[in-house]
Design a protein around this nucleic acid. Structure first.
Lengths: 368, 368
DNA sequence: CCACGCCATGTAATCGATTACATTATTGAT
DNA sequence: ATCAATAATGTAATCGATTACATGGCGTGG
C-alpha cells in the first residue's frame, strides 16, 4: 500500500472495462447495467481506489468546498453556528473552509483569491461588511449568486440573508422589562456601524417610544458585544442619575460582564437593577442567577444558511435578488430581571435612601 | 470580465513568452531574467490572471490545505486555538479545513477520504482519539508524518504533540490551595478516558499525596469539562461530609457553573468554598469574583501546532517519532480562592455552626 | 427483414497548470 | 578564438479525472 495510489485506469483494468465506465459508475451509476456497475464497484473495493479530488475539480470546474467567513473566529458566539453549518455542508459533500475576516494580514485578498482561483464554490459570510475587493472578486468569478449572509448582512448586495428577528428580539426585551414595571431602561449597544447593533438599538428606541418611555441619550451606551464592553458600560450606567432600573444589553457577553461589574460595585441583580441579554449563549443558563435573555437559534441559523447556500449551488435559485429568512427568537426568562424596587416598594432601596425624584411620569402602561 | 477567466496561456501570449516561463515566474521567479520576469508580471496584471488551484494541485500533488479536527466545534474553548492556527496557516498559503470529530454522521470516513483523495496535505487534531479508520487512511496515503496533536494526544502514534503542561497546571492549582491553608481538596475531572482529564487528575492526586492530604475516592467526581457537569459536581460535592474547602475543576466551564450552583445553594465563594479552574477562558476574568485558574496559552498552542505542521510539510522533519512541545501554563490568581474559614478562624463558619470534626490531621505543611 | 433509435460502453479530447528535456544564448577559462 | 559550463527560455508530456462523440448490439414497428 506504499505504492502510488490506484487511479481510475487501474480500476478499469481490474474490472475489465474502460475508464469512462468507471467514471460513470462513480458519478451516474444509473447509466450502467447492473452487471458492469457491480464489476466496477468490486474493482474499486479490491484496489482501494479513491477519486483524486484535484483531477475531478479541474475537469468539473467545481471545488467541493465552501468558505465560511467569520468576523473574529475567537468569539465563541460563532462556534455553535459554525458547527451546525459544518454538519449540513459536510453531509452534502462539501468541505468547509474557515476564514477570519478580522485577521490583520492580507485576509481580504485571500478571500478574493479563493474565488478567483476556484478553490471554493460559494461562501457564507457572518460578516455584514463585504469589502470591495471581495465583491469585485465575486463578480469576476461570477460567484455573486453563491453567497449568503448569516446573522449579519448588508443591504447593498442582492443576496439572501439568514438572520434572527433582531427587531422582535429587542421588542421582547423592552416589553419584558416594562411588564415588570420598569420605566427607566438603558441599552448597551453592539459596535458602531454594525447592522445588528443598529437593528437592536433602533427597535429598542422605538419600542420605548411606544411605551412612552423617555430614553435620554446617555442611557444608550456604546458597546461592542464583548465582555470588556459590558463591564465598561456598567461603570457608565451606574454613574447615571437617575439610575436606570433595567438594562437591555445587545449581547449576553456584555450582559454577564455588566452584571459581574454591578456586583463588584455592591449592587444586586435583579434586586437593584435588572439586566437582560441577547443570544442565549450556553453560559447564560449556568450563571447565577440565570441570565434572562433573548434566545437566538444559533444552530438553526447555521443550518438554514448552509441549506440556502446548498440550494444555490445546486442551481435552485429560488428567488431573485435579496430576501430574508428569519430564524426565531424567544424571550428566555431567568433570574436577572425582576420588578424594580421602587415600583413594588417605592423608596425601599436599601442603599442610599429613596431614589431621587426622576421627573418622569410613571404611568402604568403594560402592553399585552 | 464575464468571459472565461484568463489562463496561463493567455498571459504567455500577452507577455510574448511561453507558458513555461509564466509558470516559472510564478513559482521560481529567480530563475528568470529581470526583464522577462517584469514582462510576465505586467501581463499577469493586465489580464487579471489567477492560477487555477485545481490544476496546480493536480500537477504538484499538493492540496494547499490542512485539516483541523476539532472534538465538538460548538465548544468555545477551541475558538481561540482555531483562530491562531488559522492565522499562521493562512499566512503560509494553506487553507484551513475544519471537521468536527464528534459529529454523528460519517465524519470518520470523511476525514479518511480527505487524505485518500488528496484534498489535504496534513492535519492538526485536537482530538486525542485517532480512530483506526483515520490511521489506516493516513498510512495508505503516506501521510502519517503530516499530523500533529494539539492539546490532546495519544501515545499510540509516533507524532509530535503540542500541549500545555497539564501536570504542572494541576500542581500549581493544588499548591495554591494548600498555600492558602486548604487541606480538604476535591477535584472535578474531565471526561473518562480523556487524556487531559487523566493527566490533571493523576497530577492532582500525586500532588495531594506530596502534601500528605487525604483524598477520599468520592472527592474526585467525574465531569466532562462542560457547564452542566460543573453544576452536577457541585451537587455531589456540597453533599459531602466533611465538606471539602477547596475544589480544583479541570475546566473553567465547570468551575464557573460549579460556583453558580454553590451560590444558588446559599454558599459563598470563596468564603465558604474556594474554587480554582483550568483554561483561563475570557469569561474567567469577567466573572464576579474573578475566577482563579490555570491559564493555558490557547493562542500559543494553536500557533505552535500550526508551525510544527508547517515545518513537517516543508520536509523539515526535525525529530523522529513522538516528541512533545509544551506551551506554558500559569496560575492566575483572582477572587474565587481564599483561606478556608476554619483555618484562619476555626469554628467561625457562620452557617451551620462549627465544622464537624474531620478526622484528618491538619498539620501546617505549606510548601515553598 | 430492414431501418431506426436507444442503451451500454469505448476512444480520445479536455480541464490548466508544472516540469523534464531540448534548445539557444551567454559567460569565462585557457 | 574555442570550448565547456551555465543561464534563459521553449516544446511537449504529464497529473487523473470527466465527457463529447463514436460504436456496436438489441428491440421494435412496419
Amino acid at each position: 500500500m506504499q505504492n502510488p495510489p490506484p487511479k481510475i485506469k487501474d480500476v478499469a483494468h481490474v474490472a475489465g472495462v474502460s475508464t469512462a465506465t468507471v467514471s460513470r459508475a462513480l458519478t451516474q451509476p444509473d447509466r450502467l447495467s447492473e452487471a458492469t456497475r457491480q464489476k466496477v464497484f468490486d474493482a474499486i473495493e479490491t484496489t482501494g481506489y479513491r477519486v483524486n479530488q484535484a483531477a475531478r475539480n479541474l475537469r468539473t470546474r467545481r471545488a467541493g468546498a465552501v468558505l465560511v467567513l467569520v468576523p473574529n473566529l475567537g468569539n465563541p458566539f460563532f462556534s455553535a453556528i459554525l458547527s451546525s453549518m459544518n454538519d449540513v455542508l459536510s453531509a452534502n459533500g462539501y468541505s468547509v473552509l474557515v476564514f477570519d475576516s478580522q485577521q490583520p494580514g492580507a485576509s481580504e485578498q485571500a478571500v478574493a483569491d479563493c474565488f478567483l482561483n476556484g478553490s471554493v464554490d460559494g461562501m457564507i459570510t457572518l460578516d455584514g461588511h463585504m469589502t470591495s475587493t471581495t465583491a469585485k472578486a465575486l463578480r469576476n468569478a461570477n460567484m455573486m449568486r453563491n453567497v449568503v449572509f448569516c446573522c449579519e448582512w448588508s443591504d447593498q448586495w442582492p443576496l439572501p440573508s439568514i438572520r434572527s428577528n433582531n427587531g422582535l428580539g429587542a421588542r421582547l426585551a423592552v416589553d419584558h422589562l416594562v411588564a415588570q414595571g420598569h420605566r427607566k431602561i438603558a441599552h448597551v449597544t453592539g459596535p458602531a456601524s454594525n447592522i445588528l447593533a443598529e437593528m437592536r438599538k433602533s427597535a429598542f428606541l422605538q419600542r420605548c417610544a411606544t411605551h412612552k418611555l423617555d430614553v435620554p441619550a446617555d442611557w444608550v451606551v456604546q458597546g461592542d458585544f464583548s465582555l470588556m464592553a459590558g463591564a465598561q458600560a456598567a461603570d457608565r450606567i451606574l454613574a447615571l442619575s437617575p439610575r436606570p432600573t433595567g438594562v437591555f444589553c445587545a449581547s449576553d457577553a456584555m450582559a454577564l460582564s455588566f452584571i459581574a461589574r454591578c456586583r463588584q460595585r455592591g449592587l444586586r441583580v435583579p434586586d437593584d437593577i435588572s439586566v437582560i441579554g441577547f443570544d442565549d449563549i450556553e453560559m447564560a443558563a449556568y450563571a447565577e442567577p440565570g441570565l434572562t435573555t433573548i434566545r437566538q437559534d444559533r444552530a438553526g441559523l447555521g443550518r438554514l444558511a448552509a441549506q440556502e447556500l446548498l440550494a444555490r449551488l445546486r442551481g435552485e435559485q429560488k428567488t431573485e435578488g435579496a430576501y430574508v429568512i428569519y430564524a426565531p427568537v424567544a424571550l428566555i426568562e431567568r433570574g436577572t430581571t425582576a420588578a424594580p424596587q421602587n415600583a413594588t416598594q417605592p423608596g425601599a432601596n436599601g442603599r442610599g435612601g429613596p431614589e431621587p425624584a426622576t421627573g418622569f411620569p410613571e404611568p402604568v402602561d403594560k402592553p399585552a
